[in-house]
């Protein structure tokens, strides 16, 4: 039954795998990515009667994961600022993550959704367009402008495939 516990359990593994992968790319920490993915799926379950019927529910979940990860990175930022519990190696990665979070947060929502779904959740442009309810051309435009803006924040060498992250 769509929207019931059985369908949530049946789809759990695939949804969790996607959420965990996206969270890990954003956070760079598998352990914290597990926590974020679990919380994202708990929120998904809380809205499951509605979300189960969405044609592009992975986009909905990706948005939840992104928001949670950005919150998590904001907590990380406080640690970076105060220097709590950070080794040099960890702090270098942490600074990079904090910069990424700030860059993502500074994007207009549509641009952020497009970047996350296309480059971090690895959906193709047609899929992203369908999920956002816009044309593929508009997705390209959002991506183009978002990347330009992130380069202005993170530096001209920023790679939209997020290979650094």
């Amino acid at each position: 039954m769509v929207g019931g516990d059985e369908s949530f359990e049946a789809d759990f593994d695939e949804m969790f795998r996607r959420a965990q992968r996206l969270a890990c790319r954003l956070l760079g920490d598998p352990s914290r990515a597990d926590d974020v993915a679990a919380e994202a799926l708990a929120r998904t379950y809380a809205h499951w009667r509605k979300v189960a019927g969405y044609e592009h529910r992975e986009a909905w979940i990706a948005r939840v994961v992104t928001n949670l990860a950005i919150d998590e990175m904001a907590r990380l930022r406080r640690s970076v600022v105060t220097g709590e519990h950070l080794t040099d190696e960890v702090s270098e990665g942490a600074v990079l993550r904090v910069a990424l979070a700030q860059a993502l947060r500074s994007l207009p929502r549509r641009q952020r959704d497009a970047v996350v779904l296309r480059y971090l959740a690895d959906l193709d442009e047609a899929h992203v367009a369908a999920a956002l309810g816009v044309s593929a051309g508009t997705v390209k435009t959002h991506l183009h402008r978002a990347v330009a803006r992130m380069r202005s924040t993170l530096g001209p060498g920023f790679d939209p495939s997020f290979t650094e992250f």
């Binding site: 679990a38 799926l41 708990a42 379950y45 809380a46």
Partner: peptide
């Protein structure tokens, strides 16, 4: 472990739903 995770997530989801 997987089943425990699913049950834990659903329990948390129910809590969020009740709160909402």
């Amino acid at each position: 472990t997987r089943d425990a995770l699913v049950q834990s997530v659903m329990a948390r989801g129910r809590t969020l739903r009740r709160r909402r």
